[in-house]
Write a protein that binds this DNA or RNA. Structure first.
Lengths: 207, 207
DNA sequence: GATAAAATGGACCAGCAAGTCCAAAACTTC
DNA sequence: GAAGTTTTGGACTTGCTGGTCCATTTTATC
C-alpha cells in the first residue's frame, strides 16, 4: 500500500467509522472483525489491506477517532472559558454529551480492551487528558488574570482536579446510568473556583 | 454440588484467589482459564465444578472479591471521618493504596471486560459506589453536625463529588501512571469541605 | 489502450480457549 | 468397611475469530 487512491481512502474511512459505530453500540468485546466487515460491506482483504496490523491497529485508530471526538464535542465552549456563564455553558455541554452517550464509553472500552500490551492506547488517552486539562487550565488562568479567581490558585492543579471529577463522574455513570456524580463533581469544582475569588489563601490550605 | 466439604471450599477459594491474583498482574484479557488452572494447581473439572457458570461466573466472583477489598483497604479510616486530621489520614491512605496498585485496576478491568451483557458486574460496581459514598457522606454529616462544615452542605452530593474525583483520579492514573490527579481531586474536595465551615451559603451557589 | 499499481472478493487456515465428559480417587457417614 | 457423595484428572470436542493468500477487477498513468 504505497499510495492511496481516493476510492481507497474512502474505503478505509468507511471501515474506520463503521467499526467505531459498532463499538459504540455493542462494545469492543462483542465486535468482531467479521461484524465490521458485514456492517461496512467490505471484505476481509480490504480490512487487512488498510489496517495491516489487523484488529489491534484498527482498534487503535478507533481510539484516536473517539479521543478526537471527545474534545470536539465540547467546542466551542471548552476553548472559551472566559466568564462564569461560559463555564456554566461548558459544564452543561459536558453533562449533556455524556448523558446522550449513555452507559457505554467507547474510549474506555477500547483502551481497557487493548490493555497494557499496546502502549499506543495509553498514549492516546494520556494525550487526550493532557490537552483537555491544558484547555481547562487556560480557562482558569484567564479567570485568575481577570481577578475572578484568587492568584494563589494553581491552574494546572485545579484543572487536574476538575478533570478527575469529570472522568470519575463518567465512569460511575457507566454502571449506574445516572449523571448525578458527574454533575456533582463539576458543580463542586466550579463552586470551589468561584469561592476562591474573594478569599485568597483559602484554596490551597488543604494541600 | 449440593454441599461443600472443607476440602472443596478450600479448593474453590484457592481458585478464586489465584484467579484474582493473575488478573491483578496480567489483566483479564490475558488471563485464560488454563492460566488459572496452572497457577492454582487445579484441573478443569474442578474449576467447572465450583463455578458451573464457567469463566463468567468466576470473573464475577473475582469482581466481588476486588470490590470488597477496595473498602477494606480504606479501613479503619473510612469509617471514622470525624475530624480534619482523620479526613487527611483517609486521604493519604487512599492515595497510598492506589499508588501501590499501579496502573492496573482489577475491578475496572473485570467489569469492563464482562461488559454490559452481564448485569451482575454493573451491580457489583454500583453497590460498591453506593456504600463507599454512604460512608463518605456519613463523615460529612458528622463534620456538619460538629459545626465544622456549613449546614447547607448536602452530604450526599458532596460525597458524590468527592467519590467521582477519586474514581477519575484512579482512572487517569491507569494511563499516566501518576497519582497527581487523584491527589488534586482529593485535596480540592477536602479544601472545599473545609472552606464551607466559615461561610454558610457558599457551597451551594454553583448549583 | 497498454501497463503497472491498487483495490477487492472470499475461500481457506490455524490456533486458542471455553466447555464437556467419564472414570478414578478421596472423603463422609453409618 | 461399605455405600454414597464429593472431588479430581485430563483427554477430547467444538466453535469462533483473527489472519493469510491468491485470483480477479478496477483504477491511474503514459
Amino acid at each position: 500500500m504505497r499510495t492511496l487512491t481516493r476510492k481507497g481512502a474512502a474505503t478505509r474511512q468507511r471501515i474506520l467509522e463503521g467499526a467505531a459505530a459498532l463499538i459504540r453500540e455493542h462494545g469492543v468485546a462483542d465486535t468482531t472483525l467479521d461484524d465490521v466487515l458485514a456492517g461496512t460491506a467490505t471484505s476481509k482483504s480490504q480490512l487487512f489491506h488498510y489496517f495491516p496490523g489487523g484488529r489491534e491497529e484498527l482498534l487503535l485508530a478507533v481510539a484516536r477517532l473517539e479521543a478526537d471526538r471527545v474534545l470536539e464535542d465540547q467546542r466551542p465552549q471548552l476553548g472559551d472559558l472566559t466568564s462564569w456563564p461560559a463555564w456554566q455553558a461548558w459544564r452543561d455541554k459536558v453533562v449533556d454529551r455524556y448523558r446522550r452517550q449513555g452507559r457505554l464509553c467507547p474510549l474506555n472500552s477500547v483502551t481497557s480492551h487493548l490493555g497494557s500490551r499496546t502502549p499506543g492506547a495509553q498514549a492516546v488517552v494520556t494525550e487526550l487528558m493532557r490537552s483537555w486539562q491544558a484547555e481547562i487550565a487556560a480557562g482558569v488562568r484567564h479567570m485568575r488574570d481577570a481577578g475572578e479567581i484568587g492568584p494563589d490558585v494553581d491552574p494546572d492543579r485545579a484543572a487536574a482536579a476538575l478533570l478527575a471529577g469529570i472522568q470519575g463522574g463518567v465512569l460511575i455513570q457507566m454502571s449506574t446510568g445516572e449523571t448525578t456524580h458527574l454533575e456533582a463533581a463539576l458543580d463542586m469544582g466550579l463552586a470551589h473556583l468561584r469561592a476562591g475569588r474573594a478569599r485568597p489563601g483559602r484554596v490551597a490550605d488543604g494541600l
